[in-house]
Design a protein around this nucleic acid. Structure first.
Ligand code: SF4
Ligand code: SF4
Lengths: 134, 134
DNA sequence: TTAAACAGGATAAAATTACTCCTAAATGAA
DNA sequence: TTCATTTAGGAGTAATTTTATCCTGTTTAA
């Protein structure tokens, strides 16, 4: 697993919306405040909406808001929403199976590490992050 | 961190040489047996040689061998030899520093996870992997 | 001297990442 | 109704990284 810029932006989006959970936040505002390219942010918010992490409202005075409280949204949720399932080596993605897999002694280690990672990412929610930024 | 194909190949190289630690292994043999492209393997072995994980001998009957016993070589060694230092998000690489870093509440989490990862990767050596493949 | 084997630089193909742009659809207000 | 505003979604593009290949040079044993 590696956090791409897209995922980093996604996290910033959630971070931003978590500051004012009631308000509808427009793409332009989020992008400007968090220093991200607007049109890219638009795409990212679409992904977050599909993953039911944020809600979107079209039209005048529209925008985005969190669907859950910050404490219910974890790093894992956000990462998986934009990057898909966590993996370490491509042989862990089913369609990129390796022919040596059945006799490979390293593969199980990747699985173990992935599980540790998932566990850890589950433990960080956005209430935790908001406490620190204020 | 993500294991690229290059790193996976590097691990297979070590795995291969760990089976017969005394012998000099030629690029062609390693590549064929482990199902990897020969010219790419040549480059990878160069990296492993620079990292002092393997020794290389030129000329007729030349080849590669491990410089240490399999138990002294860890996954971390091999990964760092080909990919460089472990990181989760690019903001952890000094030259790709993010301007928001000082006030970012997420950054410390990446550091923590990286440390966990490093710790885990240190614990797996190639004697362990050889036991299983036989 | 020659064939076998690695060293190292340059470069190319493929894949992924990091975006942009355009048209459509929804919404609220004049 | 009509219009400005705001997101939706598809297509396309630029930049970067990954995954190699090739060529020339050097080392070495026979
Ligand atoms: S050799 Fe093992 S670790 Fe590498 S891709 Fe195949 S199954 Fe995965
Ligand atoms: S916003 Fe935080 S986590 Fe993201 S790149 Fe900057 S310092 Fe790193």
């Amino acid at each position: 697993m590696k956090i791409t810029r897209e995922t980093d932006y996604a996290i910033r989006c959630i971070l931003h919306m978590a500051q004012e959970t009631e308000k509808l936040h427009m793409i332009t505002d989020i992008a400007k405040k968090q220093d991200m390219p607007k049109s890219f942010v638009a795409k990212i918010l679409q992904k977050l909406a599909k993953a039911k992490i944020v809600s979107s409202t079209r039209g005048v005075n529209g925008g985005f808001a969190l669907r859950k409280t910050p404490s219910e949204i974890t790093l894992l949720h956000v990462i998986e929403a934009v990057q898909g399932p966590i993996f370490i080596n491509s042989c862990m993605v089913d369609n990129k199976r390796c022919s040596r897999r059945s006799l490979c002694s390293v593969h199980p280690v990747w699985i173990e590490i992935r599980n540790i990672l998932i566990d850890k990412l589950k433990k960080y929610d956005f209430q935790f992050f908001c406490k620190k930024t204020g």
